[in-house]
Every structure is written in C-alpha cells, then in structure tokens.
Computed example of a mutant assay.
Amino acid sequence: MVKDNIIALHQKNIADGAASLFINKGFTATSINDISKLAGYSRRTIYKYFESKEEILYYLIIEGLEYLIQSIEEGFCSCKSFISRYEHYCECMLYFYENYPISAQSVDQFQSKAYLNITPSVERIFTLGENINDILALWIKEGKEEGVLEESLETLPTVYILSSNIHALLKLITTKGSYILTYLQMTKEEFLSHGYTMNLKSILK
C-alpha cells in the first residue's frame, strides 16, 4: 500500500509537470527531456513510471475523466429534478475544462479505436467515456419519466448531441472567448448561461 502511494505520488508529479508543457508548447513539441527538467526527474526515472510520453498524456486524460464521472454522479444523487441535474452537469463540464484542460482538449481523439494503439490506458479512457454516457442516458430516461422530455426522444442520440453541444460551447469560450466576449459585450457567465439555456430548450417539451 505504501509502495503504491509512492508510485502514485511520483506519477502525479511527473504528469503535472508535463501538463504545463503540453499546454504551453503542445504535446508534439514537448520532449521527455523537457518534462525531465521541469518535473525534476531523470529520463530514466520518468520511464520507470511511464512507458512513453503518450502514457503521460493518457494519465492526464484519465485523471480528468475520473474527476468528471465522480462529480456528475455525486451531483446527480443530490439533485432531484431534471433541470437541476442539467445545471449541475454544466457546472461539472466548466470545471473540467478549466481545471483539466489537457483531458478536455484531448478527449476528442478517442472517438474511434480504429486508429489507436490499444493499451490498458486507452481502454480505460473509452470505458470512462462509456460510463459517463450511461449516466447521462439514465438522466434522459428519467427526464422522460418526469414529463419534461418527449417520450419519443431517442436516448443515446440525445446524450451524444447534448454533450457534444456543451463540449463545443466550452471549447469556443476557451479558444475564442476574449474576442467573442468583447464583441458581444457579455461576461463569460452571461454567454455560457445563454448557451446552456439554448441547449436545454432544444430537448424540453
């Protein structure tokens, strides 16, 4: 147990150092040497904890997705109405984008297994994504039972479209927020609230 905790600590330190480099330089431009210098670990030690630079990226993606699934589950347990759960989901997604940017920015790469080298980490990423979709699918079904959604609404397509729209909204505010907010003379909160409301209205009765 102690050994596992030590391993987890070193992996976390290395990954945190890599994350800042991936954000500032980009994944491709970042080398193991760069990570070694910033994180304070030798190349040999880094390879002791991660087989490759890709595995460090996967670690960061998994870290973000694990936060996301836990926070969604916790909130959905305490929020009882469809609307309050939607508001909580939006809050979780915003926190995900702001605090786990590497995970949020990289998750789109995992839409198909066809072009990926399938490692245990990659499998874990797909599993977490499927788990999140399962939670959202149950939420949509409960919305139908609650009477706020049309019974004819197809569950899984709705999950994919709804979550994709929120991803796109947050990606937009992340990449072009300064220009958009200045042009529209809106705050970030006002813009996101407007987007969330439009998204929600598209599925309500």
Rank of each mutant, 00 (worst) to 15 (best):
Q109P: 00
S121R: 00
S71D: 15
S103G: 11
C90W: 09
S106M: 04
I102T: 12
E123F: 07
S112H: 14
C92K: 15
F76Q: 05
V122M: 01
H88D: 11
S71Q: 09
N99M: 15
V107C: 00
H88R: 14
Y97A: 01
E98L: 15
K80R: 09
Y67H: 09
P120N: 12
E91P: 00
C79M: 13
S112W: 11
I125C: 07
Y115G: 03
Q111C: 09
E73Y: 11
I118Q: 00
Q111D: 12
P101E: 06
S106T: 07
E74D: 12
A104F: 10
F126S: 00
Y89G: 12
D108K: 02
E98T: 12
P101V: 11
Y115S: 03
S71F: 08
D108L: 00
L116F: 11
T119M: 04
P101L: 05
F82C: 02
A114H: 09
Y100N: 06
S103Q: 07
F110Q: 08
F126T: 00
F76V: 04
Y115K: 03
L68E: 13
I125W: 09
P101S: 07
Q111A: 14
Y115A: 05
I102R: 11
G75C: 10
P101D: 04
Y95W: 14
N117W: 06
H88I: 12
Y97R: 00
A114S: 13
I102M: 06
E98V: 12
K80F: 06
H88G: 11
L94V: 15
K113E: 12
F96A: 04
Y115Q: 10
N117S: 09
